[in-house]
Simulated scan of single mutants.
Amino acid sequence: MNTSSVLEFVFTGLTDKNELNIPLFVIFLHVYITTVLGNVGIIIIVMVDKRLHKPMYLFLSNLSFVDLTYSSAITPKMLQDLLSETKAISFAGCAVQMYVFVSFATTECISLGIMAYDRYVAICSPLLYGVLMSSTLCFWMVVAAYVIGFMTALVHTIPSQFLLNFCRSNIIDHFFCDLPPLYKLSCSDTSMNLAVLIILGGLVSISCFILILFSYTNIILAILRIRSAQGKYKAFNTCTSHMTAVSVFYGTIFFMYLRPSTSYVLQQDRVASVFYSIIIALLNPFIYSLRNAEVKNAVKSFLKYF
């Protein structure tokens, strides 16, 4: 039969050492609370402070929403499993978790490319910035990122969850429903799924990465043409936070997904999975707020009301 006999999956979790469950629960509970506060804080500050009603910060608030959503698809369930003896998730729940994570992770990938293009226009064509980055264009760029993310997730989720047979076991050697561990579990031929994962994932991520490289190559060349040291510092400072976020996100994504299936070692990859699924969502608000003077000033103004 071309249907799965599995009604639920069981995660092995973050660790097989029970004595680490409580310490890990405490650590990741604090991480998740900080993630929620940091990203919600960025969204609220951008909404209430009119000085931040610019494309750069609207893209930043959208990035915070994306980070918050895909982190929330994974972390609460992981925290629950750390305190549970049976780390089970229903077949439908696994499909939903995978879909939400893949769609919003893809959206983040595209959003980082859009933000790089925004900085390129701001620094290389400042006089045309209002025309090239109009509110209407920015809106449709964000919509396009979500549409591509949702469609990409459908391409991965439907074949992975509803066209593969899971007749060997229902134990996923991971802490959430990610694609490579699920392919390892299936008794069907997953070569086509892996090919789609690498090709489609590579098409989206590498296209965005090329856009980022193009943008920052031109930004660096433009900065080098600035005569004053203060002007160079100001221009460079507006980009360092985004460059840091891009390096962290793309480094882990390329490591996890754009490599041959034979190189997947699930035990070793858990650390990388924790990083891109949980830690990046924690880091982004701090990367952008600590390196950006306008955001820091907006935070100080906002805190005066409390």
Rank of each mutant, 00 (worst) to 15 (best):
V271W: 05
I171H: 00
V196K: 00
S134L: 06
T12Y: 09
L282Y: 07
V155S: 05
M78C: 06
I198P: 07
K17N: 13
L258W: 03
N297H: 15
K87G: 05
H30F: 08
Y257S: 02
A105I: 04
Q97L: 14
F254P: 14
A95R: 08
I89E: 04
F11C: 00
I172N: 00
S135N: 11
L37W: 10
Y250D: 02
A272G: 08
K77F: 15
L20V: 00
R51W: 03
V155Q: 06
C124D: 06
I220N: 12
T15C: 04
M1N: 12
V204F: 05
G149N: 09
F175S: 01
L221K: 09
Y99V: 08
V274R: 03
T152L: 04
L82P: 00
I74V: 14
V36T: 01
V131F: 13
F249T: 01
F175T: 03
S72F: 04
S188I: 11
S103P: 14
L154M: 11
F25D: 02
L266I: 09
Y250R: 00
L60I: 06
V10D: 05
I226V: 12
K50D: 00
D189L: 10
Y32D: 03
F175Q: 02
G93H: 10
N297Q: 15
L79G: 11
S72V: 07
F101W: 14
F255T: 10
A73C: 14
G231A: 11
A88G: 06
T15E: 04
R225M: 07
F139A: 10
Q80F: 14
L14Q: 03
A272I: 11
I89K: 01
I198W: 10
S5G: 15
K232A: 04
T12M: 10
R51L: 06
Q268M: 09
V6D: 07
K54C: 01
L203Y: 01
A145C: 11
R291N: 09
V131I: 11
D67A: 14
I212W: 01
S90F: 03
A145H: 13
Q80T: 15
L266Y: 13
L164F: 07
D81W: 10
R291Y: 04
S289Y: 07
I280M: 08
L132D: 11
F275L: 07
L14D: 06
L224Y: 10
E294Y: 12
I148F: 15
G38D: 04
L20K: 03
G38W: 06
Q230H: 12
S247M: 04
G93I: 06
I42E: 09
Y276A: 06
Y146N: 13
L127D: 15
F150L: 14
S5C: 09
Q97F: 08
